[in-house]
C-alpha cells in the first residue's frame, strides 16, 4: 500500500511529460528523423530499365551509390574546397566576433545598444539578398567601388572563394558575436571586482578572465560554423551566375543539388549521407579535442 502512492505519482508525472514532449517529438520525427531515414533508404536504391525508353524501376543496390560517391572526384574536390574555406574563414570570423563582443562588454564603449543591433543586422538580411548585393559590389562594371574592382577581380578563379568568405563573414559575425556576448554577460561581476582590486586593467581582464570563461561558447560557435561551412549553398549558388569560376559542383551541397536535378535522387541521397557523416565526425572531433584541452 505504502509504495503504491509514489508509483502512481511517477506514472502521472510521466503522463504529463509525454504530453509536453509530444508536439516536439511529433514535429521532430516528421521533419527531421523521417527525412534522414528516407535519405538513407533512398541511397541504397539503383535504377534498372529495359530498352531505350524503358520504364525505370528502383531496386535495392546495396552500397553501389556509396561506391559512386567515393569515386566521384568532383565531390571530394568540393569537400576539400570548403575545408580550406573553413580553415581560414571560421577563425577570422570568430576572432572578429570575439573582439566585437569584448568591445561591447567593456565599460569604455558608449552606445552599446546601437552597436549590438548594428553588428547583428546583417544576419537579418536573407542569404540570397546578401549574396546578390555583394555580387554587385564585386562586379567590375557595376560596383560603386569600380576603381578597386577593376584592379582586383573578386570573381576570378583564385579569389572567388574568398569573395564568398567575405559575404559569409559579413552575415554571420554578428550572430556569433551575440552568442559570445551573452555568455560574457553571464560572468558574475564579483570576479571583475576582485581582478580590479588586484590591479588588472581592461585588457588584462579581457585576456585572463573573459576569454577563458567564454571558451564554451567559442566551442559552440566553432561547431555551428563548421556545420555551416560544409553546408554552404546559397552564396555559391548565387555567385554561380555572376562568376565563371563557380561551377555546378563547387561545394558539396551544390554537387548534391546537381545530382538531384539529373534527376539521380539515389546518388544525391548517398552524397548527403556521406556529407552528414563527415560533418558529424568533424564536429565531434573538435568537441573532443577542446574538451581534452580543457581537462
Amino acid at each position: 500500500m505504502s509504495s503504491s502512492i509514489p508509483m502512481n505519482r511517477t506514472r502521472k508525472r510521466q503522463g504529463f511529460l509525454a504530453v509536453f514532449i509530444l508536439p516536439f517529438g511529433l514535429l521532430f520525427t516528421l521533419f527531421y528523423i523521417l527525412p534522414i531515414l528516407y535519405a538513407m533508404w533512398q541511397s541504397t536504391r539503383v535504377v534498372e530499365r529495359d530498352g531505350t525508353f524503358g520504364a525505370a524501376r528502383e531496386v535495392f543496390g546495396g552500397l553501389t551509390q556509396y561506391q559512386n560517391v567515393f569515386s566521384n572526384t568532383e565531390f571530394w574536390e568540393s569537400i576539400g574546397r570548403v575545408l580550406m574555406f573553413g580553415a581560414v574563414q571560421v577563425p577570422v570570423m570568430l576572432g572578429l566576433a570575439l573582439l566585437l563582443a569584448l568591445l561591447l562588454d567593456s565599460p569604455l564603449v558608449k552606445g552599446r545598444r546601437f552597436f549590438r543591433l548594428a553588428y547583428f543586422a546583417p544576419y537579418a538580411v536573407p542569404g540570397v539578398i546578401a549574396a546578390i548585393m555583394w555580387g554587385f559590389l564585386f562586379s567590375p562594371n557595376l560596383s560603386p567601388f569600380d576603381w578597386v574592382m577593376t584592379n582586383v577581380d573578386f570573381m576570378s578563379p583564385t579569389l572567388v572563394l574568398w569573395a564568398i568568405a567575405i559575404v559569409v563573414t559579413w552575415v554571420y559575425t554578428g550572430y556569433n558575436m551575440i552568442i559570445i556576448y551573452s555568455s560574457l554577460l553571464a560572468i558574475p561581476q564579483d570576479i571583475f571586482e576582485a581582478a580590479r582590486l588586484d590591479g588588472a586593467g581592461q585588457v588584462r581582464i579581457a585576456w585572463s578572465i573573459k576569454i577563458p570563461l567564454v571558451v564554451p561558447s567559442l566551442v559552440l560557435t566553432t561547431i555551428f560554423s563548421i556545420i555551416g561551412t560544409l553546408q554552404l549553398l546559397t552564396e555559391p549558388q548565387v555567385f554561380k551566375t555572376f562568376s565563371t569560376a563557380v561551377n555546378s559542383t563547387y561545394t558539396p551541397n551544390l554537387a548534391v543539388y546537381a545530382a538531384s536535378s539529373i534527376p539521380d535522387y539515389s546518388l544525391a541521397a548517398a552524397m548527403s549521407v556521406v556529407l552528414a557523416v563527415a560533418t558529424f565526425i568533424l564536429s565531434f572531433s573538435v568537441l573532443k579535442f577542446t574538451q581534452r584541452k580543457a581537462d
Binding site: 510521466q14 509525454a18 514532449i21 517529438g25 520525427t29 528523423i33 523521417l34 531515414l37 528516407y38 533508404w41
Partner: peptide, 20 residues
C-alpha cells in the same frame, strides 16, 4: 520516459519506412 519515447520513435520510423 526516455526509453518510452525512443521506442515510440523507432516504431514510428519503421512504420514510415515500410510505407515509403
Amino acid at each position: 520516459s526516455r526509453a518510452v519515447s525512443v521506442a515510440l520513435l523507432a516504431a514510428l520510423a519503421t512504420a514510415s519506412v515500410a510505407a515509403c
